[in-house]
């Protein structure tokens, strides 16, 4: 190959590298940010799921025939009202990690976060 051809090949290779790199980084960024749109809060009573709410939609919901009330805002969920003595469930505050849960023991009720990439098996 003469000089001119060699340079053309080099430029082509560089462009290819640049494109691949951009694609790769692009995919990385997209997969990271796809964090909370698919996330939801699952409401379980005893061991049965009774309701499921998307964390992408803000709202306040009465659950379990009104024994508890949850609020969803900015991809998080918390217990705002509960018909129970010590209100430990309300004091838990906001949760947002996969598998994280708020429990209202007297009502045998749990609100669990699912479907988010922000995941730990246990949060203490």
């Amino acid at each position: 190959m003469d000089g001119k051809n060699r340079r053309a090949t080099l430029v082509r290779d560089l462009i290819l590298i640049a494109v691949l790199l951009c694609l790769g980084i692009g995919l990385l960024v997209v997969s990271r940010s796809h964090n909370r749109t698919g996330a939801y809060a699952v409401v379980m009573v005893q061991n049965q799921e009774i309701a499921r709410y998307s964390l992408a939609v803000d709202g306040v919901y009465d659950i379990n025939d009104g024994t508890n009330t949850i609020e969803i805002k900015d991809g998080r969920v918390r217990m705002t009202e509960a018909v129970c003595l010590n209100h430990l469930c309300i004091r838990q505050g906001w949760i947002r990690f996969e598998n994280q849960s708020i429990v209202c023991l007297p009502n045998r009720l749990s609100v669990i976060v699912r479907g988010t990439d922000d995941s730990y098996d246990y949060v203490l």
Binding site: G93, I95, V123, L124
Partner: peptide, 11 residues
């Protein structure tokens, strides 16, 4: 995997 909460920012 286990996460332990930050007392200043429990979220």
């Amino acid at each position: 995997t286990v996460g332990i909460r930050d007392p200043l920012n429990p979220e």
